[in-house]
Amino acid sequence: MDISVVIPLFNEEESLPELMAWINTVMIANNFSYEAIFVDDGSTDDSWQVINQLKEEYSTVRAIKFRRNYGKSAALNVGFAATKGDVVITMDADLQDSPDEIPELYRRVREEKYDLISGWKKKRYDPITKTIPTKLFNAATRKMSGIKLNDFNCGLKAYRNDVVKTIEVYGEMHRYIPVIAKWAGFSKIGEQVVEHRARKYGVTKFGLSRFVNGFLDLLSIFFVGKFGKRPMHFFGSLGVLSFLLGTIMALWMIGVKLYHIAMHIPYKREITDQPLFYIALVAIVVGSQMFLTGFVAELVTRSAPERNQYLIEKEIN
Score class of each variant (00 low, 15 high):
residue 42 G to I: 11
residue 82 A to W: 00
residue 36 A to R: 04
residue 64 I to E: 06
residue 79 G to T: 02
residue 47 S to R: 00
residue 72 K to Y: 11
residue 53 Q to G: 14
residue 88 V to D: 00
residue 64 I to L: 14
residue 56 E to I: 15
residue 65 K to S: 05
residue 45 D to C: 07
residue 62 R to A: 10
residue 75 A to T: 12
residue 70 Y to C: 12
residue 43 S to Q: 06
residue 69 N to C: 04
residue 50 V to D: 01
residue 93 A to T: 13
residue 51 I to W: 15
residue 45 D to E: 08
residue 68 R to G: 01
residue 90 T to R: 08
residue 79 G to R: 00
residue 61 V to A: 12
residue 76 L to Y: 13
residue 41 D to T: 01
residue 73 S to E: 11
residue 85 G to S: 09
residue 60 T to C: 04
residue 84 K to T: 14
residue 67 R to D: 13
residue 60 T to V: 02
residue 79 G to N: 05
residue 90 T to Y: 01
residue 42 G to E: 09
residue 56 E to G: 14
residue 80 F to M: 00
residue 37 I to Q: 06
residue 45 D to T: 13
residue 83 T to S: 08
residue 58 Y to K: 07
residue 63 A to R: 01
residue 56 E to Y: 15
residue 78 V to N: 00
residue 38 F to S: 09
residue 91 M to A: 04
residue 90 T to A: 12
residue 70 Y to S: 08
residue 64 I to K: 08
residue 38 F to Q: 11
residue 39 V to Y: 15
residue 86 D to E: 15
residue 58 Y to F: 15
residue 45 D to P: 05
residue 85 G to Q: 14
residue 80 F to P: 00
residue 69 N to M: 05
residue 56 E to S: 14
residue 72 K to H: 12
residue 39 V to A: 13
residue 86 D to T: 14
residue 63 A to Y: 13
residue 83 T to E: 05
residue 54 L to A: 09
residue 52 N to K: 06
residue 87 V to I: 13
residue 44 T to A: 09
residue 92 D to K: 00
residue 47 S to P: 11
residue 87 V to D: 04
residue 85 G to N: 14
residue 54 L to D: 10
residue 73 S to Q: 03
residue 79 G to V: 02
residue 70 Y to K: 14
residue 79 G to Q: 02
residue 45 D to G: 08
residue 83 T to Q: 06
residue 40 D to C: 13
residue 39 V to R: 13
residue 79 G to C: 03
residue 63 A to L: 05
residue 45 D to I: 09
residue 80 F to T: 00
residue 76 L to R: 11
residue 66 F to T: 02
residue 64 I to G: 00
